[in-house]
Design a binder for these strands. Structure first.
Lengths: 237, 237
DNA sequence: CGAGCGCTTGACAGATCTCAATAAAAGTGG
DNA sequence: CCACTTTTATTGAGATCTGTCAAGCGCTCG
């Protein structure tokens, strides 16, 4: 796993790690371009992989996941989207993922025919995609190279705004490095996002609990007691 | 690994698998927008992760890889780019990956200041990013859910145009289901792309050879003897 | 021909998965 | 509101796959 002695890793010692952006402000939303807005309740499918692609979507509020399935039922959650992020682009004429809400959500839906000719739409599109692409790159590192503990720690860190990146200044308060977290995903969804099994996720969470890094108030309600310790476990430090 | 009996996999039984596109024709290239074009020799770094981002790049000819490193030297190749594909977008002001040529390559380089205001550039950008994003999604499935054999088989199939997708019609010729392949990546690069170790990649290749699915003429020169068999091993059938 | 590099192979270790049982939580109906 | 069912999560034991470490092979090039 370690290539420490390779020429390359020495050569790159100076590289830095970008801050994970919070929800990015990309200016306009699709609502400004004539999109209609729909409300979905939690755990509803917006479209299925293979459906004819007719609209482009933007999360207005709530959380949405995109996933793909292999024929034998293995599932990979490929993106978890928050407000301001877009989905539903299809290279061909069919959606390449299934989109499902994780929470109650409000979604802007823009007819694909309105997309091509509008510079502002294209600009927002390019900006959002570039941002989501960076997250996908980071996620590829997680899936390809991180251990189970590192994956779960990284996942939890993603959920804290303004921590864990280059700009991270440590805890705001010396004595209190805690943070309260509400998970909007089941263990199975987390597992499918992190490329693990539900049992492994559960075991890692129990382990973090045992080590005093987190406190599990309910299975979807987690208090991070030592954010800095957790951050040390992401593999990025 | 199998979720065959879940409600979900039944619900999605009808889904289809999109054809992996070959190099996509997105109309204009950056050259049409005033980009300068540079030549790079094989295995040269175009920019490092963390460098100040000033340009947007498009592969004109050759192959380029993007990768990220963890502090302990673990590497993940996050994209392998072919002509027409773009890279160098930075959400912030720094490149988030290192870009390195795999082969001799010719690269269009467009000043970032020329990007924002041009509808055609934005259109190409959005189109390319959407396409590359689909590939990243597919790759996330590979990294998160596929076995070593499935990863290598998928990798080899990617390198054959017009095979392996929904539109795949099988071999052109009943008796000959072969294809000659030139790899432009070392075993280490392939391993870092597939989230495996070099030893595992080597073992899988040897195994495919033993099973008569491929013939290894040189380590970077592989003849696929039974494309359909190989395709069956990708986990997508 | 020898050195160096990339690749292959073997033996073993360890992380994660699988399968199975149990526990806890959430939803249902009387 | 309380049994009862169903779903979701946890835990254990064992199997398996891939990683680690080490040695050897085979090009390629000076």
């Amino acid at each position: 796993m370690a290539y420490l002695d390779t020429q390359e890793s020495i050569r790159f010692a100076r590289r830095v790690r970008p801050v994970r952006p919070g929800v990015q402000d990309t200016g306009d939303t699709f609502a400004d371009f004539g999109a209609k807005t729909s409300a979905y309740s939690a755990h509803n499918v917006i479209y299925y992989e293979g459906d004819a692609a007719q609209r482009l979507f933007e999360v207005a509020s709530g959380t949405v996941m995109l996933f793909k399935l292999l024929p034998d039922g293995r599932r990979q959650v490929v993106e978890v989207l928050r407000p301001g992020e877009i989905f539903g682009l299809a290279g061909s004429n069919e959606y390449e993922c299934t989109a499902e809400t994780l929470t109650d959500a409000s979604i802007h839906e823009l007819d694909l025919r309105l997309v091509d000719s509008n510079l502002d739409v294209q600009r927002k599109l390019a900006k959002c995609l570039a941002n989501q692409m960076r997250i996908l790159h980071e996620h590829a590192v997680l899936l390809g190279r991180k251990s189970a503990v590192e994956r779960v720690a990284s996942f939890l860190m993603y959920l804290i705004p303004n921590r864990g990146g280059v700009g991270c200044l440590g805890p705001e308060n010396e004595d209190d490095d805690g943070y309260d977290l509400k998970l909007h995903m089941t263990r199975q969804e987390i597992a499918d996002y992190l490329g693990l099994t539900i049992e492994t996720v559960s075991r890692v969470v129990s382990d973090l609990k045992r080590r005093g890094v987190i406190r599990v108030d309910r299975s979807d309600q987690i208090h991070l007691r030592k954010v800095c310790s957790l951050c040390q476990m992401t593999g990025m430090h």
